[in-house]
Design a protein around this nucleic acid. Structure first.
Length: 410
RNA sequence: GGGGGUGUACCCGAGUGGCCAAAGGGGUCAGACUGUAAAUCUGAUGGCUCAGCCUUCGUAGGUUCGAAUCCUGCCACCCCCA
């Protein structure tokens, strides 16, 4: 087995990476790998608590792919045991929801399918950490716990913040980083990938590996990708994510709403475009830069054609304000209408599921967000009590993002 | 086990008997402006059959004409002592 030169590898590895600790050791490992013709074992652990893979997850996964392309061995850990604990990273409180074994397995499968869009699964090792944690007895667990002190645990940022804020830290959560670190011992990792928030667990892994007379792993940590709101980390629960399984146009719409300020980060972490070129792109009109960004990423998860189509559709329907082509059809039963076939405006919005409550319907109407179209003739609705004659095929809008087409049924 | 403290809407947080569907801020949503960016401005932010009504201030009761506010039990969390 032969590998590219160390410098070349480092160039690729360093891109979009916030911290490599310790970096000198990485160089040594790469050299040794070239000399001996042995691929490095690169670990990435996933916690199958949520099923959707989004761009945030894709950052370390892309890094993994780069390692694979350089000839190294990908090792994926499905944290079926750790998922039962819940990752305390970056959380200000414990996870309340406990997943069942079945849910975890189901998530894991779905997860892997998506992960396969980024890395080469055929050439990756996949392990479930339940395989080894499930076999441990109390003695083993106590032995493991005996390797870490409370004081060490409390140096962990999330924990110390929680202590500070007087938010509870449960004992089982303390086990999480220890388990994660133990995974590294079991699979004998050379490198571990993840976000910077994983620093603690990654370092702990080194301690445990040393304790077992193993090679110590290097941490290659990516910055945390901010979500579409431009401030908080991308996460499903925050509703600021772009999923890698979303349809092209859906992704397009989300990309175009990104704050300009995050573009640089997205280019760096989510594309392969050379950084000096990125700089050129960002000097141009921000809108063009954003379209290019969106197209590049969408093309990776769909294809070039789909990406261009999505961009064209966006320009036409949103950029130029034409009628959207993907207006969902909503059924209204004739029996819910008045004798003359009409409905009060606020009720209509609710019937069409454009708003979750009557109160919100009223708010939207007051805010001037509501109008309807019959044969492309636009009529504004200004009063919530207004009686609207409901017709088959009429299009109702209750805000930029909320459209519906009426279908009448008996 | 003992003592002290806290629990308010999505979040933070004011409110200590009626004027409280509950200040203020953040967030979010809608509108204007724009490049569906940012900034700014305006409005909204429990629900409904909406100038009225119903449900909400950890939870269950109680006192009172009237409670988020007072009392009691319970629950959860934090701190101190052991």
């Amino acid at each position: 087995m032969s590998f590219p030169a160390v410098e070349h590898q480092l160039n690729i590895i360093r891109r979009g990476v916030e911290k490599i600790v310790p970096e000198e050791e990485l160089v040594e490992k790469l050299k040794k790998s070239i000399e001996t013709g042995t691929p490095l074992r690169v670990k990435y652990g996933i916690d199958p608590t949520a099923a959707d893979v989004h761009l945030g997850h894709s950052v370390p996964l892309r890094k993994m792919r780069q390692f694979q392309d350089l000839g190294h061995q990908a090792v994926i850990i499905i944290g079926d045991a750790t998922a039962l604990v819940g990752d305390p990273s970056g959380r200000d409180e414990a996870r309340t929801k406990k997943l069942t074994v079945e849910e975890v397995e189901e998530n894991a499968q779905y997860y892997l399918n998506q992960v396969g869009k980024i890395i080469d699964l055929d050439n990756a090792e996949v392990h479930h950490n339940g395989d080894w944690f499930g076999k441990m007895d109390l003695g083993d667990i106590l032995n493991l716990c005996g390797k870490v002190t409370i004081a060490q645990l409390l140096t962990r940022d999330d924990f110390s913040k929680r202590m500070e804020a007087e938010v509870p830290i449960y004992l089982h959560e303390c086990l999480y980083p220890i388990m994660q670190a133990w995974d590294s011992v079991v699979i004998k990792s050379d490198i571990e990938l993840g976000g910077t928030e994983q620093l603690y667990s990654f370092m702990l892994a080194r301690d445990l590996q040393k304790d077992q007379d193993l090679n110590q792993q290097i941490s290659v940590m990516s910055p945390i990708l901010v979500g579409t709101d431009g401030t908080r980390r991308m996460g499903k629960s925050l509703g600021n994510y772009i999923g890698i399984s979303e349809d092209a146009f859906g992704m397009m719409k989300k990309f175009m709403q990104l704050p300009d300020a995050v573009m640089k980060m997205y280019y760096e972490l989510l594309t392969e475009i050379q950084l000096d070129e990125v700089e050129q792109i960002l000097k141009g009109h921000p809108k063009d830069a954003k379209v290019r960004l969106a197209k590049t990423i969408i093309a990776e998860y769909h294809d070039e054609t789909a990406a261009c189509a999505a961009a064209a559709q966006w320009q036409k329907e949103i950029g130029e304000g034409n009628l959207p082509s993907d207006i969902p059809e909503k059924t209204i039963s004739r029996s819910s209408l008045n004798e003359d076939g009409s409905l009060q405006a606020a009720r209509l919005l609710k019937e069409l599921e454009l708003v979750p409550s009557t109160s919100q319907a009223i708010q939207r109407i007051k805010g001037g967000a509501v109008f309807f179209l019959i044969d492309s003739e636009k009529t504004k609705i200004a009063d919530r009590g207004e009686w609207i004659h409901v017709e088959e095929g009429m299009v109702v809008r209750a805000g930029k993002k909320d459209w519906a087409k009426v279908k009448l049924s008996d």
